[in-house]
Structure formats: C-alpha cells, structure tokens
Simulated scan of single mutants.
Amino acid sequence: MTPGARRVLDSASELFYERGITAVGVDLIAQHSGVTKRTLYNRFGSKETLVATYLLARDRRWRAHVADALETPDLSPGERVTVPFRALREWMRGNPRGCAFINALAELPDPEHPGHQVAADQQQWLLELFTSLATDAGLRTPDDLAHQLLCLYEGALAVQVPATTRSSAETVGDAAAVLVRAAAPSNP
C-alpha cells in the first residue's frame, strides 16, 4: 500500500468507527487524510471498496488477537472455548463504540454491499471457531453450543452499559463458562 493509500485507510478507519460509515463521505476522508479525492479513488476505486478494506483490516486484527489469546499455555480444551470472550474483554477496552461489524451490518443492510459481506463473514468465522473449539473439547451438541456462544458474544457487543462496574464482555464470559460446563459430557 502506498503512503497515501495508508493515510486514506487509517483516516477512513478512524472516521468510520467513530462517526459511522454512512455519516462519513469521501470529502471528509480525503480532507482528514491529506490527499485529494482523486488519490482516494485511484487507490480504492469507491467508498464501498474502502469500507470493505476498513472492515477487512479490523477483521484481520481481531482474528490475530483471538489467535494470540488461544496460544495461552495450559488452557484446558473447555477453557479454550471461552477464550474469544477473554479476548473480547481486552479488545473492548480500546474500542468503546462497540463492534464495527455489528455497526456495519446495521448501516449496510444490502447483502450485495462488499462491507456487509465482510461483516457477515466475520460472524460466520466466529461461529465456526466456537463450533471447532467445542468439538475439540468433546462437548455435547457443539453446533448448538456454538450458536448460543455467538449470541452471547454479539449481545455483549450490543449491550455496553458504561455506568456498571462489570463489562458486558465479562458478564457474558461468565455465562459462556456456565454453558461450556453444562455441555461437558460428564453432565447429565
């Protein structure tokens, strides 16, 4: 990526996350990044492509964050299932406006929009990760459990109450641990 393209993407990422995708136009992104609109279009082609690129970059960072958390030594297979919740707690400290993917899905309802597809793919990846971790842990009904965990995860992102002493990610992390223990084969 050229330095100009990097500035455009960095500026767009900040603006899209802070102000919303539909509220931010290419004029503002060009001004904020110090490039011309022509440079923006030469590098990305369209706002839609820039939105998808922004979401893909966030997705890569999030997946790397989860992968790093899964490398924690001495985790039992059951504990590994709840690692995305621990990673989410850490992630939310630096992302107070909630989930960029939920926000994108709310702002981009058209499934043909490339940004919508990136956000939907991120949710599918997380569902598949939960399913894989639950299967590896030998838990009962891993597909059902994965769906329950995804709903908890997404709920934590949708419900952030700043006035409380516990984060929503911490609360759903505890709930996820209860679900994982209940799905253990030794439980009736």
Rank of each mutant, 00 (worst) to 15 (best):
N42R: 09
L55S: 04
R86T: 13
V161H: 11
A184K: 07
Q31G: 15
V8T: 06
P73Y: 08
A69Y: 06
L126F: 02
V178Y: 14
G155I: 04
A169N: 02
A52L: 06
H116S: 03
T39H: 14
R97M: 12
D174R: 13
W91L: 05
G155L: 06
L55F: 08
G155W: 06
H113E: 03
R97N: 12
G98Y: 03
E90M: 11
T39L: 14
A52V: 07
A184N: 08
A134I: 03
L70I: 11
A64G: 05
F16S: 01
L149F: 06
E18W: 10
K37W: 13
Q122T: 07
Y54T: 08
P188T: 15
V161L: 12
P3W: 07
T53D: 05
A169Q: 00
N95E: 15
A156W: 00
S46D: 11
Q122Y: 04
T164M: 11
L152M: 09
E112V: 06
Y41L: 15
N187L: 14
V118H: 00
V26T: 14
A137P: 07
P114Q: 04
I21N: 00
T82R: 01
H32Q: 15
D68E: 13
Q160K: 10
A67S: 12
I29S: 02
E14Q: 14
G20L: 01
V180P: 00
A87C: 08
R80Y: 02
E79C: 01
V24L: 08
A158D: 11
H65M: 07
L88V: 05
E71T: 14
A104N: 03
T72W: 10
G20F: 03
T164E: 11
T135D: 05
A183W: 00
